[in-house]
């Protein structure tokens, strides 16, 4: 039987070479970032031995940059590091809210939002926040980098759009203007250490009291997190008044297709997604005005 292996390449080319060689040899590999999913999966009884490819030794995956030119969060950057970055805190409070909800202090010391995204759980907290913030995936391939919007990256439960031999280097964003702010809210039965029953990420831009741009994304209420363009349409051009918020909430509810389980029924989740949408917009609105 094959046994587990571990490599920690120091460059993008080396990672790609390892991935490519194992495809050629028909061997399994698994990329490792913070390991908070990988190590749990490795404990499952039927987990097949494979070569673990640690991507934390690359300069590119350790990038955490916030400047006028844009924001870059490398695939090896932990939630804890993100939270300690003052400028990131200011620029993307909603994304940090999501990262801060992922697991305990201990988990956040290792876990990355890129790993959360690649793992592609329907309830992954960072995903709606990344979509709302208009994140772009920076993907390393044998033919150079390619880019993809976060909303196109997750294609099913536990499935992402990476082809064999590719890996995620990081996510990037345009630097939000001062009047553009995001927010993320999730609903869980407990206040800490629980999995989202519903998650909503939003971002609004406000000028002269009018919403000039908006993005709304919902999580845990469909197989993948979704961008809700109808919700944005309801907000743009409005004063973010109650009627606009209600219409946005209704749009979220309409696009959702949740399941019933012990954490909540379909009806319940649909009701909550509309409520959370309204609340998240109110928070983002307030943040946009405070700047």
């Amino acid at each position: 039987m094959e046994s587990y292996g571990y490599v920690a390449p120091g460059s993008i080319d080396e990672v790609l070479a390892v991935l490519n060689a194992s495809i050629g040899a028909g061997q399994m590999t698994q990329l490792l970032a913070g390991g908070s999913d990988v190590l749990v999966q490795m404990r499952m009884p039927n987990h097949q031995p494979r070569t673990i490819v640690d991507i934390k030794k690359l300069a590119e995956t350790n990038r955490l940059e916030v400047s006028a030119e844009g924001i870059y969060i490398g695939a090896a950057v932990s939630s804890a590091l993100m939270n300690e970055h003052q400028d990131l805190q200011k620029a993307m409070p909603g994304l940090l809210e999501a990262a801060d909800l992922i697991g305990s202090t201990q988990v956040q010391g290792r876990a990355t939002i890129c790993g959360n995204l690649c793992n592609a759980s329907p309830a992954g907290d960072s995903i709606p926040a990344l979509i709302a913030a208009a994140g772009i995936c920076d993907i390393a391939t044998a033919n150079g980098n390619r880019e993809m919007a976060v909303e196109d990256f997750v294609i099913g439960v536990g499935k992402n759009a990476l082809q064999q031999g590719e890996f995620l280097l990081g996510v990037k964003f345009a630097m939000p203007k001062a009047n553009t702010k995001d927010a993320y809210l999730r609903f869980t039965p407990r206040t800490e250490m629980d999995i989202a029953v519903v998650g909503v990420g939003v971002r609004v831009s406000v000028a002269n009291g009018i919403c000039t741009d908006a993005r709304v994304s919902i999580g845990a209420v469909a197989p993948t997190a979704l961008l809700v363009p109808e919700a944005a349409d309801a907000l743009i051009g409005s004063a973010l008044d109650d009627a606009a918020l209600a219409a946005a909430g209704e749009a979220c509810k309409n696009l959702s297709s949740p399941i019933s389980d012990k954490r909540g029924t379909v009806e319940y989740r649909q009701k909550v997604v509309a409520v959370l949408c309204k609340r998240a917009i109110a928070i983002a609105h307030k943040r946009a005005l405070e700047n």
């Binding site: 571990y6 490792l32 390991g35 190590l39 201990q106 988990v107 010391g109 290792r110």
Partner: peptide
């Protein structure tokens, strides 16, 4: 940095 040692490989 505070972490869970069960969520990290020895290597």
């Amino acid at each position: 940095r505070l972490v869970c040692s069960c969520l990290m490989l020895g290597v």
